[in-house]
């Protein structure tokens, strides 16, 4: 049982929903990443998703694409992100999930990557361009190091896919709320509620929802029908444009998820 499982265990007992903010590692700098993770934790994040910059992020919208190219421009690499996690671990126990495209991992060497990630304190992985069908080796190595493998489901997923993805996922299942890329507009409708329920028929693992969650009231609605809320693009945008408002925004999302608004 790793930090992710313990966190969801605790949330379940407390009848609370997870808040999972996403930031791009190294945007604007890796030092800032340390400060930002601290801020997120202080303001009530349960887990943190750390994006690894990649030259061709095809599942991401413009906000995260631009953040990735800023980070790459500053020389941020997968290796450096792993070192940053090691530094975060000196003072924090918050579960950390790396979101990285597959090629940097492949290039690093899958086995060595999982070992290094694990020893530095990474708890889980999201690889958006690696469906479970292609992930046999990643699964094997991750199990060995007790790293969670979080796979995605989408509105287009068939029962067959839901079964496969739920089985391969550990930690939680990531439901992509819309057909689209990160930062698209969210639609909270019957479809979302029904789909989360459908996934839960196949698995008792937590289901968290992301892609397009921006306003606190959206976070509240999503929390209402799932086990957790992932917020990415709007945080990344705020870090770039009005960082002074970030703390309050995170606090507001937290409150909304807890049903306190």
């Amino acid at each position: 049982m790793n930090r992710i499982d313990r966190t969801f265990g605790k949330l379940k007992t407390e009848k609370r929903k997870a808040f999972i903010p996403y930031i791009m590692a190294g945007d604007p700098s890796l030092d800032d990443t340390l400060t930002l993770v601290k801020l997120l934790e202080d303001e009530g994040a349960d887990l943190v998703e750390l994006g690894v910059p990649f030259s061709d992020p095809l599942a991401d919208g413009p906000v995260i694409q631009e953040a990735a190219s800023r980070a790459l421009g500053r020389g941020v690499t997968l290796r450096k992100v792993i070192s940053t996690v090691r530094m975060i671990r000196r003072s924090s126990n918050i579960p950390i999930i790396l979101m990285t495209y597959y090629n940097p991992v492949f290039r690093y060497g899958l086995r060595r990557f999982i070992e290094d990630a694990s020893s530095s304190g990474v708890d889980g992985l999201i690889v958006p361009d690696l469906p479970p069908d292609e992930a046999a080796e990643l699964l094997k190595e991750s199990r060995r190091q007790d790293i969670s493998t979080i796979f995605l489901l989408a509105p287009t997923s068939t029962d067959k896919r839901i079964r496969l993805v739920s089985r391969a996922s550990t930690g939680f299942i990531y439901y992509v709320s819309i057909t689209g890329i990160t930062g698209s507009r969210l639609r909270i409708d019957r479809h979302l509620v029904r789909m989360v329920r459908r996934i839960k028929n196949f698995s008792n693992k937590p289901v968290c929802v992301g892609f397009g969650v921006k306003k606190p009231e959206e976070a509240a609605a999503v929390a209402n029908c799932s086990d957790g809320v992932i917020v990415g693009s709007s945080i990344v945008k705020m870090i770039k444009e009005k960082r002074g408002s970030l703390r309050k925004y995170i606090r507001d999302i937290r409150k909304a998820i807890d049903g306190l608004v």
């Binding site: 599942a59 958006p128 489901l153 287009t156 997923s157 068939t158 896919r161 689209g180």
Partner: peptide
């Protein structure tokens, strides 16, 4: 070869 794409595209 293979099929290294986001899950949304797998059914398509």
């Amino acid at each position: 070869g293979g099929r290294f794409v986001p899950e949304t595209l797998v059914p398509a």
